[in-house]
């Protein structure tokens, strides 16, 4: 459970998030909004990369904003980037290992943990492949793999479907729907693909110009007149 209260983020004069309050309790939550609405900024505020000027983010009584970014990650806040962050000369296995290095998991359990995640993502055979030899879909899966190792509490996925083909989207959809049951983490999914959101998210939040304009059951949120006007155009 994550509780966002009166969160405001400003980049100079630009108000990227304007007094956003929302309680995230469902297992898989959608976050949509037009380009520049503030979706990535919200994820960045969670991670500690956005200039928060007011408000709180709390989870189970812990104040996330008071923790440095790496401590939030170790606490269990995992996120993927809109532009995948895969190191050219690091193997897939070592990407996941790098995340585990900070989590204090006993050495003996690490290999099994990495295998479990790679098998879940169906990229176990890429274990030893370096980042530069991965195609777009494989890199995307490795990026999600970094989020899943080491017992995440909350997984924030920023447009994981960007640039994927239909067939790859099918795989991605299967992965996202099973994250909660397999890893116990809450998932926040940002995507422009409304079908994906409708399929996998029980509730959805809608941002527009930094304001939360709707939040509730996905079908209701998508049917909302204000949302239709803002998001789909008149």
């Amino acid at each position: 459970m994550i509780d966002v209260a009166n969160l405001t983020v400003k980049f100079g004069g630009v108000v990227a998030l304007d007094d956003v309050s929302v309680r995230l309790t469902d297992d898989v939550i959608g976050l949509i909004g037009p380009n520049g609405a503030g979706k990535t900024t919200l994820i960045n505020a969670f991670s500690g990369f956005a200039p928060v000027t007011g408000g709180r983010i709390r989870s189970n009584g812990r104040d996330l904003l008071s923790m440095p970014p790496h401590a939030r990650a170790r606490w269990g806040l995992a996120r993927s980037f809109q532009a995948v962050q895969i190191v050219p000369d690091l193997t897939v296995r070592d990407h996941l290992q790098a995340v585990l290095d900070g989590k204090g998991m006993p050495r003996s359990d690490r290999a099994a943990e990495i295998d479990r995640v790679l098998e879940f993502l169906e990229i176990a055979e890429l274990r030893q492949r370096e980042g530069r030899f991965l195609n777009q879909f494989q890199a995307r899966m490795a990026e999600i793999g970094k989020c899943l190792v080491g017992g995440p509490r909350m997984v924030l996925l920023d447009e994981p479907g960007g640039g994927l083909s239909e067939r790859e989207m099918v795989c991605l959809r299967r992965v996202i729907t099973r994250i909660h049951s397999e890893f116990g983490a809450q998932v926040l999914l940002v995507d422009h693909d409304v079908d994906l959101i409708r399929d996998v998210c029980s509730v959805t939040a809608v941002l527009d110009f930094g304001k939360l304009i709707a939040f509730g059951a996905t079908a209701d949120a998508l049917a909302n007149e204000v949302v239709k006007a803002a998001y789909f155009g008149r």
Partner: peptide, 24 residues
């Protein structure tokens, strides 16, 4: 070992490293 992996993650981007729990 761990420092080598951490350094490579930092080289990719500091945000990437921090998001992976690495103390940059």
């Amino acid at each position: 070992s761990a420092p080598g992996r951490a350094w490579k993650m930092i080289r990719m981007s500091e945000a990437n490293a921090m998001a992976a729990g690495i103390n940059v």
